[in-house]
Amino acid sequence: MTEPDSSRSRPQGAYDVFLSFRGEDTRKTFTDHLYTALVQAGIHTFRDDDELPRGKEISDHLLEAIQESKISIVVFSKGYASSRWCLDELVEIVKCKYRKTRT
């Protein structure tokens, strides 16, 4: 899916919204619909894709996307809390929120 012109003019990595979700639970259903609606509304949204490198730790690319996003939307699903990857994202989201409220 292409991004709206308003999103392309922003610096790379500066997102309005970061979506955190467990892919196997909601990628093809709720999260896909949410992402599409946000993008169609001109909201620059980060959603990981299947091509991001997976590892034992959260990638620098994801950390940067979380840190540079204005807000995060966490899509809790049945298996969200059983995913180490999702929990690592959630920890970083909470840390960023804490830092932003302290400044």
Rank of each mutant, 00 (worst) to 15 (best):
residue 64 E to L: 03
residue 75 V to A: 15
residue 20 S to V: 12
residue 82 S to N: 14
residue 15 Y to I: 03
residue 79 G to D: 15
residue 48 D to R: 01
residue 19 L to E: 13
residue 86 C to D: 14
residue 40 Q to A: 08
residue 63 L to A: 05
residue 37 A to G: 07
residue 41 A to P: 13
residue 67 Q to P: 03
residue 86 C to V: 07
residue 81 A to S: 15
residue 46 F to A: 01
residue 16 D to M: 00
residue 48 D to W: 00
residue 43 I to E: 08
residue 19 L to W: 12
residue 33 H to I: 07
residue 79 G to E: 12
residue 47 R to Q: 08
residue 50 D to R: 06
residue 38 L to T: 06
residue 54 R to V: 07
residue 58 I to A: 11
residue 60 D to W: 07
residue 34 L to H: 10
residue 74 V to R: 12
residue 24 E to M: 03
residue 16 D to L: 01
residue 64 E to S: 14
residue 81 A to N: 12
residue 62 L to G: 08
residue 73 I to C: 06
residue 74 V to I: 15
residue 78 K to V: 05
residue 71 I to L: 15
residue 75 V to R: 10
residue 82 S to M: 04
residue 82 S to R: 04
residue 64 E to W: 05
residue 78 K to S: 06
residue 48 D to P: 02
residue 40 Q to P: 09
residue 21 F to I: 03
residue 37 A to C: 06
residue 15 Y to G: 00
residue 45 T to P: 10
residue 47 R to L: 03
residue 40 Q to D: 15
residue 33 H to Y: 13
residue 56 K to V: 08
residue 31 T to A: 07
residue 57 E to D: 15
residue 73 I to N: 13
residue 74 V to K: 09
residue 57 E to Q: 11
residue 66 I to Y: 01
residue 72 S to L: 02
residue 47 R to F: 02
residue 83 S to G: 13
residue 25 D to E: 01
residue 64 E to M: 02
residue 59 S to L: 00
residue 57 E to T: 03
residue 19 L to N: 11
residue 34 L to M: 10
residue 63 L to F: 04
